[in-house]
Design a protein around this nucleic acid. Sequence first.
DNA 1: AATAACCGTGGTACCGATAACATATCGGGA
DNA 2: TCCCGATATGTTATCGGTACCACGGTTATT
Lengths: 346, 346
Amino acid sequence: MNANSANVTIRDVAQLSSVSPMTVSRVINRSERVSPDTRRRVEQAISELGYVPSRLARGLSRQRTGTLAVIVPDVANPFFTLVLRGAEDVARREGFRVILCDTRADLALESEVIEEMIAHRVEGVVIAPVSDRSKSHLRRLTKFGVPFVLIDRTVPGIYSDVVLGDSTGGARQLVEHLISLGHRRIGFIVESDDVSTARDRQQGYAAALEAAGIPLDPSLIANATVDPDGGFNGMRQLLDSKNRPTAVFTVNNLVALGAIEAVREARLEVPDDIALVCFDDIEYASRLYPFLTVMEQPAETFGTLGAQLLLERIGGRGDDRDRTVVLPARFVVRQSCGASRQQSAP
Amino acid sequence: MNANSANVTIRDVAQLSSVSPMTVSRVINRSERVSPDTRRRVEQAISELGYVPSRLARGLSRQRTGTLAVIVPDVANPFFTLVLRGAEDVARREGFRVILCDTRADLALESEVIEEMIAHRVEGVVIAPVSDRSKSHLRRLTKFGVPFVLIDRTVPGIYSDVVLGDSTGGARQLVEHLISLGHRRIGFIVESDDVSTARDRQQGYAAALEAAGIPLDPSLIANATVDPDGGFNGMRQLLDSKNRPTAVFTVNNLVALGAIEAVREARLEVPDDIALVCFDDIEYASRLYPFLTVMEQPAETFGTLGAQLLLERIGGRGDDRDRTVVLPARFVVRQSCGASRQQSAP
DNA sequence: AATAACCGTGGTACCGATAACATATCGGGA
DNA sequence: TCCCGATATGTTATCGGTACCACGGTTATT
């Protein structure tokens, strides 16, 4: 009670319990070699003074901080929110704390953030990199001996543990579904191709078309930022093209939302005029209104697995080889693809 | 390039540039009193060695870490995600980093997390406390001289800066709206009353009823956890009661989602059989399907303001008095309340 | 010309913990 | 009885910075 416990140090505790700081340290760290009696006295002093050991000092002395960084391009994107939560959960269980960094998909900010994490001497990093150009930042981590795990995206030239979704296969399946519904002119709204996930999905898209003998028409591919605005603009571009698609595959859910708005603005309807499919579910939206046909990825598992791989490496338990984990997506057919019309009501 | 920069210290830089560590420190911290020539030499050495100063050491020595904690009951709740992002943003601009903590609405975990943040010597905390019983945890912060700002919820007996929504007024407005639509039996699904926000909303609910001369019927108030499951159970309870409500007000959006599912399961419909209103919008869901009538709160502003108040206090610029900021909510009428039927189509 | 004021820089101690080694104490075996 | 080893505890140096004060050399002041 009473006073301010802010500046209580291990020496104060030592003094009060008439032992050396070293013994107090032993008690704190549960190391053996402390007599029950002494231990009791020290614990008494600790609680009396309200002593909380400084992690700064401990980190400096031990040369380990017990801290991880999780770096994502957008915390507000439900996918990354879940990744974060998964990683945080695993980290906590293993006695690590997590510093969150949101790069806003900005390379310069990402670079800055990584420098900061190095300065903080985090013991590892779980990162969904902004793009291929994140390579130099990641190299910095390597140079400082900070292990990291890539989430959701690979970076050419960077070798590390990776947790990915099956972008190529998932994309292919989505597009094949559209083809099976009779679509031949299928648009694709995607971010710039310096993001591996975008490339992979584009590859799946192309593969599905090729397998069906449909020539790939570049005018059906629109580039966009990965947010609703991007989706809106991308869809508008596709709708304006003279050879308008009858179905569109968007690189993720947020893009799909904007795309739908563009369709509505053009006084058209999904799925009747434009069928739509995308990656990633929007949990809460789908609960309220199960509309989007999606490839649902186990977002939280991306985080838990990523943290697990990372912690193994930190603990020296990691395999020497880099590990790549590919998590399967789940195909969820709802209304936006137009399939429900054909399946009709029960 | 080449080797590992992990262990480069200020002394290494000093040696390479033939100055004392102190001078290097001066260069790093942009303090004046360094000749241009020396500065250049030191900077050269820094980049040559790839030196990144340790924040641990600096924090220990300076007795300030440049770190804040943001503690929320559920990162995956879009409201708190935005709070977090707002706080992170402001903190970064001011040169602070943020440690995120998710308490999962668990008091014990919250306590643990706060101890950890004290151990980390964070300079301040932005927290949406679990409940009134968070009081003892917050007292710990006070005892350690760590300033904090409460977000979204007050805690009786705790005096600090607070950023709140207008729960009472918002609730009253929502319920009055339902009343104006002709409803007299209005249910309320709410969490336990040891959360100030829940109390305030209940008070607004009661006030609206009283103003309309409608007696408050306790059987119309259902208690629930703040998530879709809670909403589901709560709504089921209300539907099963012999005097079923014709409209329901839920304490937030996630609860509303579950409530809607319960209505559907009972083969009823919103808003025809049960009108529904709640606090907090679900951004992405509403974009796809603007259905819920809500009191939309400026979540990100909760975070930015909270961080600002906190940083002011840390910087000693804070007003001596505790400040309470109440942010107005925006009433968004959509379909779930049933008003659109009456307003008819244009 | 003597003194003051300032500038750039270095020396030393310290922030709060811990690693590594040293020492005191005690019981037991030769 | 004496020495050995185990056990409990203390001492010292160190982690990587920075605060504080001191010092030699200029330049300004009178």
